[in-house]
Design a protein around this nucleic acid. Structure first.
Ligand SMILES: [Zn+2]
Ligand SMILES: [Zn+2]
Ligand SMILES: [Zn+2]
Ligand SMILES: [Zn+2]
Lengths: 166, 166
DNA sequence: TCTGCGATGTTACATTATAACGTTTGGCCA
DNA sequence: TGGCCAAACGTTATAATGTAACATCGCAGA
């Protein structure tokens, strides 16, 4: 069964869009991926993923923990961190090192590192799907004999929407 | 008085070199910059910078604190973090978000964000001095109407030296 | 010398993340 | 079906990183 294609692009996050659809698609895709790879998307893991997808704003582990608490789950940090670990390993979420926070991956079908534009005003983060930059970086590193394993690219600035408002 | 030019290049770190010279030049340059900008490079700040420059391996704040302790200074975390803040503000060191660690800047004369190649084997980090990549990223972000403020680029992999050994 | 501000000292605490070990659960095979 | 194993989860404690707040010190300029 083909994985339903998430139609998010590099410019979805910072424009008006049907976010319910983002959530829907992200969760459906996650379920598909786990199913076809024999991975167990348990309650905890699914709920963490849902909470992360509530917005395009990166979420801290302890925020998730707090939501869990509100929902009556009395979980300790390892519960959340383990779920996040699973989701990261399977490319369903990325961790933003510059924020100590997590965000849903918009193209989890194929493994990749995330590159992000992060708006300082509205806090939303847009994942870049173009692999060109990664190739450029790889090329640059290669020129020095350096073999790239993975990379962190997090660009902070102001998104078009927030710029328009100001 | 012209600032002495640090002759480090994009490939210095991962090759054999006179590291005493690295240290010497880094400290001299720092002194020059502070002098000509009316900044106070105090004992604490200088010592932190020296400790960071002991190697090309990023250093954690608490490692510095431990060194301070060994040296008889009984400092608390804020002492070190404040020195690091000063050094960062003045482009003398960079913080690597993916490691929670700090490293000396090899070109502090002009403000810039640091981009790094980080070897998983030897832990050394090479700052990239080419501003091309930054421009590419800026261009890519610009295409989406995003204004870049600053960026984090940290590439993890294996350096040529370590590759040769294996 | 006085004075004010920037630098430092000190205490306490916040935030993020993990180690270690015991318990449960869900799928697999006899 | 029943027992077994590994993976997932619960629980406790603690590690690692980073800051807030306020007191004190000390240097540069008036
Ligand atoms: Zn959305
Ligand atoms: Zn914005
Ligand atoms: Zn060196
Ligand atoms: Zn190496």
């Amino acid at each position: 069964m083909p994985i339903p294609k998430n139609d998010m692009t590099d410019s979805t996050v910072f424009t008006k869009h049907d976010h319910q659809l983002c959530i829907q698609e992200a969760l459906d895709t996650a379920k598909e991926i786990c199913k076809s790879n024999g991975l167990r998307l348990t309650d905890t893991r699914l709920r963490v993923l849902e909470l992360i997808w509530q917005s395009h704003t990166p979420v801290g582990a302890y925020e998730i923990l707090a939501k869990f608490s509100e929902e009556g789950r009395n979980s300790a940090p390892p519960t959340v961190y383990r779920a996040l670990e699973f989701l990261q390993e399977n490319n369903l979420v990325h961790r933003l090192a510059s924020l100590n926070a997590f965000i849903g991956c918009i193209a989890p079908e194929h493994g990749h590192q995330g590159s992000f534009l992060i708006c300082k005003k509205c806090s939303k983060a847009q994942e870049l799907t173009s692999r060109e930059l990664e190739k450029d970086i790889q090329a640059l590193a290669g020129k020095q004999g350096f073999t790239v394993d993975n990379m962190t690219l997090e660009v902070s600035g102001v998104c078009p929407r927030c710029k328009a408002e100001a």
